[in-house]
Each structure stands twice: as structure tokens, then as C-alpha cells.
Write a protein that binds this DNA or RNA. Sequence first.
DNA 1: TAATGCACCTGTGGGC
DNA 2: TGCCCACAGGTGCATT
Length: 280
Amino acid sequence: MPELPEVETVVRTLNGLIVGKTIRDVQVRLPRIIQKPDDPPLFAAMLQGRTFERVERRGKFIRMLLDGITLVSHLRMEGRYGLYRTGEPEELHTHVVFRFEDDTELRYKDVRQFGTMHLFVRGEEFEQPPLHKLGMEPLDELVFTYRAFRDLMAKRSTRVKPLLLNQEIIVGLGNIYVDEALHRAGIHPEREADSLKPSELKRLHESIVRVLRDAVDAGGSSVKSYVNGQGEMGYFQYSLRVYGRKGEPCQACGASIVKTVVAGRGTHFCPRCQKDKSRR
DNA sequence: TAATGCACCTGTGGGC
DNA sequence: TGCCCACAGGTGCATT
């Protein structure tokens, strides 16, 4: 499940793989992936002859900048990119193929078919869905300050976990890193955001930054199917303290990690380190 | 306006 | 062994 660290790793890998390559043609096998333009042949035609200049990240979205246009790609649950030689056998669930002039090709594979691609005139992507309403970048020190974080949390009565998952507030956090950040901060996932004390908000702010930075340094977490653009796994899954560790002892206190459902999401926490002090 | 619930989709694993 | 079904979760949309 690609969250910010996994997407950042894919972006870094793609920069080394496709920058400078010119597209000969594009094959769309699963039209559903192409959201904009709502016309896969036009999508292919717009990309033909263009050269990849660089690859960037905005939240969990990948921005591929070509001459004059931007391809915005979201991996959702299990999307992945890989560079192959033209003619190499194609794996199952390959939905979009970008063939280059040097007889290599970038393949987009997605078992669950949830991923999306949008094409924009360069610069216009920030004014339209899906990028137009995205929140703060948590690894941007100038943007994600404690003060900005505190002000956003203080006026929300909703539970802290779904709030942190809301990409209009903070981008890049998904189910894994929200559980990890809340555990490191010692905060129960069902606490109302506006009930958090300044000391708790401070810890949570620091935990979000720390867990994301550590995960980026580790190349992301390979939970289930995630690999980077070169088919390599990340290794932050070995540093996860609660996610996927139901029944195991908490590394901090030894209590058994609990799994429950919060806002429809599987949620892992330590009942001793993360006491529920909500008003409910 | 904000919060909540559900659909999308397929592979996996548990239960029978 | 094989079948069935719940579950996994990011996002967008509908509903409350």
C-alpha cells in the first residue's frame, strides 16, 4: 500500500530510469486507469514523441513532467512501475505500456486496477482534481510547522485517525504510518483531535515527521506487494511497531497489540501506551 | 459544512 | 482438497 515513503522511493527510482527517454507510443490495455482525458487514444497521442524531464511527488501522487505536459499517476493499493526491454514477456495485470525510442518500455502493473492517470498541460494540474485540494506536505519543514499542525487539529472535533488520513489536511499518510505515528506519540486513534493537549500535539507532530523520514530512508515498507521501480523491496516493515503486529508484545511496554476498526479502517494500537481519553 | 459509509477491485487466507 | 466468503485499503462520491 504505497504511502508517502513508498511513493517517494518510486519517484527517486523513476528519476534514474526514465528521465531523458522519449516515448515512441503508448498502449492502454485497461481504459479505466486513464481518467483524463476521458479518451485513452487521445491520452496516447498526447504523450507520443514527448520526453520525460523529471519525476516529482505531491502527497501520494507521482508527477511525471514531460515537455509541456504533466502526467499525474496514483498507485492506489498495488500499482507499480517497472522498466523492461521491449519484447520481454509481459506480466499479468500490465495495464499501460510506455514504449521508448531506445527499445525499452515503462510498464504500469496493477493487480487491483485501482490506480489512476491524469494528463495536464504543464502547471494546470494544481488547479484541478485530483491535486487541487491537497493539504500540507509533512516533510516540508517550512509548511508543516508545529503551529500550522496545531491550528488545524484544534478546530476539529473528529477522531484523530480519520483526520490524519484526510489528504486535504496533511498529505501522504495512510493506514500504516498513521497507526505508527499515533503509537510513537502515545495517542489513542479515537481521541477527538480538539481534545489533544499541546504536549500531545507536539509529540504527534514530531512522530509524524520522524516515522515518515525513517521510512523514506529505509526505502519504504514492503507490506504485501510494494516494490520500487526496480523491483526492490523497502525494509521499513521491520521497524513497524504496531501495524500488522496484532497479539505481539508492544516494544515499549510489553502489552499485547490490539487490532480494531476505526472509521472503517483496520487499526493497530497498544492499549497501555495509547489510553483512550476521549469524551465519548 | 463536516462527518460517515460505501463502491471500486482481486488475491489471500481462514473456516467449513 | 476444494469451495465460499470476509478482508485488505486510497480515493471519490453519496448520504446523513
